[in-house]
Every structure is written in C-alpha cells, then in structure tokens.
Computed example of a mutant assay.
Amino acid sequence: MSRRNNINMMYVKTEQEIEYMKQAALLVSKTLAEVAAFLKPGVTTMQIDKLCFEFVKDHQAIPSFLNYHGYPYSVCASVNDVVVHGFPNNHPIKEGDIVSIDMGVILNGWHGDHAYTFIMGDVSADVLQLVKITKESLYKGIEKAIAGNRVGDISFAIQEHTEKKMGYGVVRELVGHGLGRSLHEDPQVPNYGKRGNGPKLKENIVLAIEPMINLGSKDVYTDKDGWTVKTRDGKVSVHFEHDVCVKKDKPLILSDYSIIEAVEKKNVHLNTSYYS
C-alpha cells in the first residue's frame, strides 16, 4: 500500500527485529504465491481477497490493510488502468487483464507489505515490456538501498530505467515508504528524483520500495470511493514492491519473489514470457 505520511523519524531495527520482519515479508510472498496458483479467467478479485484473508489468518497473522484508515479489504486488487488501492469486486478477471495484488500482514507485531503484477494470457508487446521494465526498475532501485546513500539515489535509479529510457509515466502522487511496527514509516521513497538528494539511508532501516509505472501519462486520479487510483488516460499501470533492509555493502531483500515466480510459471493461465 502506498501512502504519503507525516511521520518524521527513521526507525533503525535490531537484527532480531529484522528477522521478525523477514518472517512477515515471507508470509506475504507465500500468500501471493497462493494467488499465483489460483488465478485464471473467471475468478474475481473478491475471491482473491477472501483467499488471502483466510491464508493469512491460518498462519496466525493479521491482514495489515484491513480497516487501515478505513480501507475495507485485505488486499488491493488493481486491474489494468487501476494503479493502486483497487477495491476487490465481483467482476470476472479475463484473458488479457493485468492484475496487481498488493497486500500486507502483521506477524509478531511487525509488518510485511509488498506487491506483484500478474499477466493473464496474451497481451500486447507494449504491455509485456512495461511489466518487464517495471520489475527491472524495482531491482535497480533496490541496488541503491545501501547505508550512506540517499533516498534520491533509489528514486533516480527507478525513474531513469522507466521514464527516461522508456518514456513511461512515473506516478508522483504515491510513494514507497519505511516499514516496521507501523505500516508506513519514514522515509518516503518516491519513484522519481535526483541522485544525492533526500534523507541519508541508515543501516537496518526497512523500506517498501514500490515502482508504480504507467504505460502512458504519469497523471492519475482517485475514484469516488476515495481509494482507487486510476491512470487519467486509461492506459495500463504496473506495480511491483519488495521489502528491503538497508545494509552497508548490499541490500537485504526480506520478501521473496522466487516463491511467487515458481508457481506463476506453472500456471498455464499466466504469461511469464517476459522473464529474462
């Protein structure tokens, strides 16, 4: 979940706390793998929400998003031109849809929060490339999550790979964020910015880095429900997110996409042809 906040303090974690956060992040990854197995044309995002709620509860955790500032569901289910915060609904998912699922859990008092975008069957080459580049940009940003670097180093890396190289729209209104006992902590982590700008990254803070990239314009608007954010031009948007612990030499990714990808590759309804 992406949200601007007014907290103004970075929370440095102990090694034990980072281990707790890793467990929370891995539960999110395992839940998203359940989604990867379940997805096929005809299922609904409301069914996905129920699946995730039950899986999280079965693992003695709490859905982070449910009732957060009044958000009424366990997951954000954003399809096609929905950027983030899409309400689950009863509309059947169809061939050619782009489905982004963003979710969080609270486990042992600590949050995990990340997102993954799935491709339902055949899509245009442009959309396939958008998914590939957005996922790549996440890792470009993560590479800069090193103690002593600035938030702007992460932001610049994502923007350069998406907007500057490809001409995609990088959403301005929504940002990544710190993560811990609260779902949103400082620092905010925009997906655009200048190298060397912004707060200095401290070792053992945890960030939710989450590029939200549009095929067309960067411009978005919020639907009448007060949550659902859509592209203004109606073009597709893609969202990927990892939980990352800042370290001295190499970032530590707490979440694990390989759990999701292994299942995704086995689901004949999902398109993974963009994998390198």
Score class of each variant (00 low, 15 high):
R4S: 05
M9I: 15
M9Q: 12
K13W: 06
E15C: 08
A24Q: 03
L26W: 05
L32I: 04
E34S: 09
E34A: 10
V35W: 07
G42D: 10
Q47A: 13
D49Y: 07
F53G: 11
K57L: 12
K57C: 12
D58M: 09
D58Y: 08
D58F: 06
H59R: 10
A61G: 12
A61W: 07
I62G: 14
I62V: 15
N67A: 11
G70V: 03
Y71V: 01
Y73H: 09
Y73S: 11
S74R: 05
S78G: 05
V82F: 01
V83P: 08
V84T: 12
V84K: 13
H85P: 06
G86W: 02
F87E: 14
P88R: 08
N89K: 07
N90T: 15
H91F: 15
G96M: 00
V105K: 02
V105Q: 03
W110L: 14
G112C: 03
D113K: 09
H114V: 09
Y116K: 06
G121H: 04
V123D: 06
I133M: 08
T134W: 01
T134P: 00
Y139E: 05
G141W: 06
G141P: 09
A145P: 00
I146Q: 00
A147C: 06
F156N: 09
F156R: 12
Q159R: 09
E160W: 10
T162Q: 04
M166N: 08
V170W: 07
R172G: 13
L174F: 09
H177P: 09
G178F: 03
G180N: 01
S182N: 13
S182K: 15
E185F: 03
P187K: 14
V189A: 01
V189F: 04
N191C: 10
G196Y: 02
L201R: 00
N204V: 01
V206Q: 03
I213Y: 06
I213V: 05
I213C: 01
N214C: 11
S217F: 03
K218T: 13
T222N: 02
K224G: 11
W227N: 01
V229S: 07
V229E: 10
K230G: 09
K230H: 13
K230A: 06
T231G: 11
V236A: 12
H239I: 14
H239Q: 12
H242G: 15
C245F: 00
D249M: 04
K250N: 02
P251W: 00
L252H: 13
D256W: 08
I260N: 08
A262E: 14
V263R: 13
V263F: 10
T272H: 01
Y274G: 03
S276K: 15
S276T: 14
